[in-house]
Simulated assay, not measured.
Amino acid sequence: MCFDNYITLGLLILQLLSEVHFKRVDAILELPRPRTIKCHLPYRLLPTQILQGKGKIIYTSRNHKDVVQSYYSVFLWGDYLHDETTDGYVDAFVQGNVPIGLWTDHVLSYWTNRNCINILLLKYEDTVKDMSGCVRKIANFLDRKLTDDDVIRITENCDVNRMRENPMTSLQYMKKYTVMREGVGTFINKGKAGYWREVLTPEMSAKIDTMKKPLEGTGLQYDFQ
């Protein structure tokens, strides 16, 4: 199954997740406070209340070369792109023809609002380098006090190998609802920054480098390891 239109693919995934993974707004309203809601929305599509300062936003991004290889791996695993080549997917990503749209638009939408008091921006690369430090930063942002034992327990549960073993973080439970390919792609990848070097060719890397221009002069930079 090869998709010429990645937006169509995104709508199909959204429909699947709405039916078997998410329980819509009513279920969210029933959750005890404080509620945690995960999404991939660009800043402009967030609920009005959040844009007006209600709640807190923790936004994690990573360098776009690792995003490409990770995204492609997930789509292969989910049996969405098994006829698509890596090079073809890179072209679609650079053009913004993927469910999240242009990576640059997405990250800059939060970066330009980084001084809002209810926003904490994190980079995946920094989290990998200093997970305990990031845990403490998040706790401080959420006005939570953590003991050293709390931090150790959290970092242990966030270890990539532990997450692979947990069906709720590895999304293995999704096999009950849809086809997930064995031995092709994965949801939990290598758990490190810079894996793109083992996947992308120099030509693919050069294509993705063309996306850096909108970041020039913004102060937003990424570590490509």
Rank of each mutant, 00 (worst) to 15 (best):
V184D: 02
V199T: 10
N97M: 10
D209V: 12
V199C: 13
M163C: 07
N63R: 07
V94Y: 00
G10I: 04
N5W: 02
I138L: 06
D4Y: 01
D83Q: 08
E156L: 13
F3M: 10
K207D: 05
S73D: 05
V68P: 00
G217V: 13
Y72A: 02
T48R: 15
D209K: 04
E156G: 00
M204G: 11
T60V: 15
L220G: 14
K65V: 03
T210P: 02
R62E: 05
G191K: 12
K56W: 00
I7T: 12
T104E: 12
L171T: 07
G185Q: 06
D148V: 09
A92G: 02
F93V: 09
F3S: 10
F75R: 04
T60E: 08
L46N: 07
L146C: 06
T48S: 14
V68L: 07
S18I: 01
R44M: 09
D223L: 14
M204I: 04
D149A: 15
E165Q: 15
E182Q: 13
T147L: 01
E125N: 06
V74H: 09
G78Y: 09
V160Y: 09
L11F: 01
R153I: 05
C134D: 06
T36K: 15
Y89T: 02
T104N: 07
I13Y: 00
T127F: 13
S70C: 08
T8M: 05
Y173A: 03
F141R: 05
M1S: 13
L31T: 04
D126R: 14
E203I: 07
T36L: 15
M180F: 15
R153N: 12
E156A: 11
F141Y: 02
K129C: 02
Y71S: 05
L220I: 11
L29F: 05
E203Q: 15
K207Y: 00
N5D: 15
D4P: 04
H106I: 00
L41T: 11
D209E: 11
D223M: 12
N5C: 13
K207Q: 10
Y80R: 01
D149K: 11
G133T: 08
D105W: 00
Q52Y: 04
W111M: 10
T155H: 01
F75S: 03
L200C: 09
T186N: 15
R164K: 15
K137E: 07
T60P: 04
L41K: 09
K38Q: 09
F22M: 13
I13F: 00
L9D: 01
P99R: 00
S205C: 13
K207C: 13
R153K: 13
V151Y: 04
R153H: 05
R136Q: 13
V135Q: 04
I13R: 12
K137D: 01
F141A: 13
S18L: 05
K38I: 06
Q95R: 12
R197V: 06
I152T: 10
M131Q: 11
K176F: 03
L122M: 12
Q49T: 11
